[in-house]
């Protein structure tokens, strides 16, 4: 099903909406500790692929084999949307989904939700184990805030932060769940050139420091070509080509479908 050196293997994934095939028999495979890019023109079905493997949508057919952080191999299609993060796969959203009325620290703590073991009763009575657990994750959240270069902002509300900071908070939140695979939906959207460059460095650093793989959907070609080791190009839900950035850049059909149109 899934070789040991891989983290995720998507097989024959298909989903259609009202007769329209958004993803059509798509297969690709991501290696452990790889940074993998999924590119394609607007409406190619990139985000739909994300939504299928994170179970926001249930695909019509196909499998998504995943090596969980518990050391098992599972088919993500058989799991519920809220169970995905606990298996070791965590995502961001195209339009930044944060909790505006909570502090940055609290937003990061939501990222650790799947890690919490105590229930509502233990929390209500502030049992020792609940307090210890809360403190443990608070410490962790503070260190990640520091790591992301947002030190000192723990208590600030998320609402009203600049867009670049919001993107960082959302990325920071993914790190709270001890992920094996982080999937980023257009992480560079809305960022300027310098910010994008800093982001590229950060993604590479995160892969090393947190020992995980990264899958990203991106429009910004400089980011994709700069950080990804392998790229899969899709158009109308179908795979056009897969390979190294150089291979993709030189691929005839990719240029026609994507680069040609875009420039």
């Amino acid at each position: 099903m899934l070789p040991n050196k891989s983290i995720l293997k998507v097989e024959h994934l298909s989903i259609s909406f009202g007769g329209l095939k958004a993803v059509d028999d798509l297969s690709f495979e991501i290696a452990q500790n790889q940074i993998y890019g999924l590119i394609g023109p607007n409406g190619a079905g990139k985000t739909t692929v994300f939504n299928c493997i994170t179970k926001f949508y249930t695909p019509d057919s196909g499998n998504a084999w995943f090596h969980t952080k518990q050391g098992k191999t599972v088919n993500l299609v058989d799991h519920k949307v809220h169970d995905i993060v606990g298996l070791g796969m965590v995502r961001t959203f195209q339009n930044v989904e944060l909790i505006k009325e909570l502090s940055i620290l609290d937003n990061l703590l939501i990222g650790a939700h799947s890690q919490f073991k105590t229930g509502v009763l233990a929390q209500s009575f502030r049992l020792r184990k609940a307090v210890l657990e809360e403190n443990e994750y608070r410490t962790k959240a503070r260190s990640i805030i520091e790591y992301m270069g947002l030190g000192g902002k723990d208590a600030e509300l998320v609402g009203g932060q600049p867009y670049g900071t919001l993107k960082r908070i959302e990325l920071a939140r993914t790190l709270m769940s001890n992920p094996k695979l982080i999937i980023l939906d257009e992480p560079a959207a809305g960022l300027n050139g310098t910010e994008t460059q800093a982001l590229a460095g950060l993604i590479k650093q995160i892969r090393i420091d947190f020992n995980c793989s990264v899958l990203l959907v991106e429009h910004d070609m400089t980011l994709v070509m700069g950080v990804c080791e392998r790229i899969c190009a899709i158009s109308f839900g179908k795979k056009l080509a897969e390979g190294t950035p150089t291979e993709i850049r030189n691929n005839q059909s990719v240029q026609e479908a994507y680069l040609g149109k875009d420039e």
């Binding site: 994170t54 926001f56 949307v81 809220h82 169970d83 995905i84 993060v85 606990g86 965590v90 995502r91 959203f93 989904e97 944060l98 909790i99 505006k100 009325e101 909570l102 609290d106 703590l109 939501i110 990222g111 939700h113 799947s114 919490f116 105590t118 229930g119 509502v120 929390q123 209500s124 009575f125 502030r126 609940a130 809360e134 939140r173 769940s177």
Partner: peptide, 25 residues
């Protein structure tokens, strides 16, 4: 106590962004 713990944060996430809440488990 439970509103100012993981349960309360989960509820806040659910009110504010259902997608984010689900993605975080």
């Amino acid at each position: 106590n439970f509103i100012n713990a993981a349960t309360g944060r989960a509820l806040a996430a659910m009110r504010s962004s259902q997608s984010a809440a689900q993605a975080m488990g």
